[in-house]
């Protein structure tokens, strides 16, 4: 590497540098922050949000936004738990089918969401917001407001079984990150998402069926929301209407902090990973250094602003909304 680092390279790595700076910062304040145990704790807390953030990253790349993830997570979590218990309640039986079924359900949910947005010509912000209500509503309808406990030892093994200090679900999530990265870089649909985000009209003029790309993008996002739901259920052992709560803002914030642009075409899976880690490191670090819990939301907010300021190339932005 040359002595001078170009501005572009610096910006590309800015979110990662922010992450490292945060780790160093918290380690100085409390050395116990930098330990395998704590790293596992951060990774575990980050896993469900990571899946959701990757899902929404696909949408942000297109220059759209998706606010339906809370509904999607709730409905797929509840659906999974219901089917799982109906079919025997343990992975050792046919109930394992509930896992792929939940992912499929998430994909269908996302597809309907994208289809509404494209067919009815409703901007994705509104379509997905309303469709998110439908998802939460469906979950409420299925549970009647009750919690469903999933206590199968094998399934909870995602949480309890550890390899090299990290729970199994963290490793699994890493595998899905690689799959998402593969989709983003190596498949036609992955590349077409960038074409739509970089210049939808140009892409259309080149003969790309941009509506189809949009619907597939939302379908993909839905599948990842479902993965997030499965991880969330595995983590707490409960599926309920509230399983999806708080995923919306945290996942979009994470993606943006990691360097995914809200106006499309910029960023990708690894940005989402870094962003989710930044947010979770801040969250965890505040606890480790003993910051009073009532201050944590405010400090998180300020740090997020700082991270976004440091990691976006504002020369490219003519005006910000």
């Amino acid at each position: 590497m040359g002595a001078r680092i170009s501005r572009a390279t610096l910006l590309r790595w800015a979110p990662f540098l922010v992450l490292i700076a945060l780790v160093v910062f918290f380690t100085i304040l409390n050395p116990s922050f930098f330990s395998l145990r704590n790293a596992a704790r951060i990774a575990l807390a980050a896993t469900p949000a990571l899946m959701v953030a990757i899902g929404v990253t696909f949408i942000l790349i297109m220059g759209s936004i998706d606010l339906s993830m809370e509904g999607a997570v709730s409905v797929t979590a509840v659906l999974f738990a219901t089917v799982f218990l109906q079919l025997g309640g343990t992975l050792a039986s046919w109930a394992w089918i509930a896992l792929p079924a939940a992912v499929l359900a998430g994909a269908v949910f996302g597809m309907l969401n994208g289809w509404l947005h494209v067919k009815l010509q409703i901007p994705s912000f509104m379509a997905s917001l309303a469709f998110g209500f439908v998802g939460t509503g469906l979950a409420l309808m299925m549970t009647g407001g009750d919690r469903i406990r999933v206590e199968d030892e094998l399934f909870r093994g995602l949480l309890t079984f550890r390899f090299a200090g990290f729970p199994l679900m963290v490793w699994l999530a890493f595998g899905f990150v690689l799959i998402a990265w593969f989709i983003q870089t190596r498949t036609t649909i992955g590349r077409n998402l960038y074409a739509v985000g970089g210049g939808e009209e140009l892409a259309h003029a080149s003969g790309l069926n941009t509506r189809r790309v949009r619907v597939i993008g939302f379908t993909l996002a839905g599948a990842f929301y479902a993965l997030g739901a499965l991880m969330a259920v595995a983590r707490i052992g409960i599926a309920e209407t509230a399983t999806g709560n708080n995923f919306m803002f945290i996942s979009i914030t994470s993606a943006v902090v990691g360097g995914v642009a809200l106006w499309g075409g910029i960023g990708g899976v690894w940005n989402a990973v870094v962003g989710v880690l930044i947010v979770n490191v801040i969250n965890n670090g505040m606890v480790v250094i003993g910051l009073p819990d009532y201050l944590q939301d405010g400090v998180l907010g300020l740090m997020v602003i700082l991270a976004v300021v440091l990691s976006t190339d504002r020369r490219l932005v003519s005006f910000v909304k």
């Binding site: 036609t188 590349r191 074409a195 970089g198 210049g199 140009l202």
Partner: peptide, 22 residues
């Protein structure tokens, strides 16, 4: 310019014609 700036050269050249390489 009708090239999409965030794509690579080859992606722009074959935009919408990717099927032949899949």
């Amino acid at each position: 310019q009708s090239l999409i700036p965030n794509l690579t050269v080859m992606e722009n050249v074959f935009l919408g014609q990717e099927a032949q390489f899949v």
